[in-house]
Design a protein around this nucleic acid. Structure first.
Length: 199
DNA sequence: CACCCGATTATCT
DNA sequence: GATAATCGGGTGT
């Protein structure tokens, strides 16, 4: 091969089979891809949070229920939950075999393609408020209960594609946002300086 | 930009 | 009956 081709591929299930905070960090820079109504929506993941079953802030902390069952299912699937009576949030199930559940909340993405569709779904939102929060990402990508348990490791309505990793020097770390318990646990990861991080 | 607050309802105790 | 991994609008600096 004369020219070096960039291999564009869907992240395999093994990508998600590691400790949840590590997968969260590795997801930064990867591409969230949604096939929606004959259109393609693409966002570069720029902010995430890890939630593991031994962690008091996690929905999975008190065991499996109907709502959180996806987090106890196969890694590489979506856990979509409804909250505050009006918002959906997207997680990707990820944990190693020392834990029984874990997920990475997708808090923000940088919109790359399908921006007009995202703006329609977000109802006149400004570009800078399009995908800079977990509820906003779900709304902009048309993600709701229908995608709970959806496998993102095969071609389909929702996928995560590989992209270059982010070097440690460019990754910011902090406590997670909007939680009551375990506020000090430093499991929020974001790409420093990116315009779409939620705060 | 920062902070405050009300909306709105599925889910769990 | 209380809570919630949020958002958007309002007010003030």
């Amino acid at each position: 091969m004369h020219n070096k081709e960039r291999s564009i591929h869907i992240l395999p299930r093994s990508f998600y089979q590691h400790d949840t905070p590590e997968v969260a960090r590795q997801l930064l820079g990867k591409l969230l891809v949604r096939l929606y109504d004959e259109k393609i929506l693409i966002g570069r993941i720029v902010e995430v949070e890890a939630y593991r079953n031994d962690d008091a802030a996690s929905h999975s902390y008190r065991g499996k229920t109907e709502r959180n069952s996806a987090m106890f299912g196969p890694v590489g699937c979506a856990y979509v939950y409804f909250t505050y009576g009006m918002h959906y949030c997207l997680n990707l199930v990820a944990h190693n075999n020392k834990y029984v559940a874990g997920g990475v909340l997708i808090r923000a993405v940088e919109p790359l393609d399908g921006i007009e569709v995202m703006q329609l779904l977000r109802k006149n939102s400004s570009l800078k408020n399009l995908t800079n929060g977990p509820g906003k990402v779900a709304q902009a990508f048309g993600i709701a209960r229908q995608l709970n348990h959806h496998d993102v490791t095969h071609f389909g309505e929702l996928m995560v594609y590989d992209a270059p990793s982010i070097e440690d020097a460019l990754i910011g770390v902090s406590g997670r946002i909007g939680i009551r318990h375990a506020q000090e646990t430093p499991w929020r990861f974001f790409i420093k300086g990116n315009a779409w991080i939620s705060r």
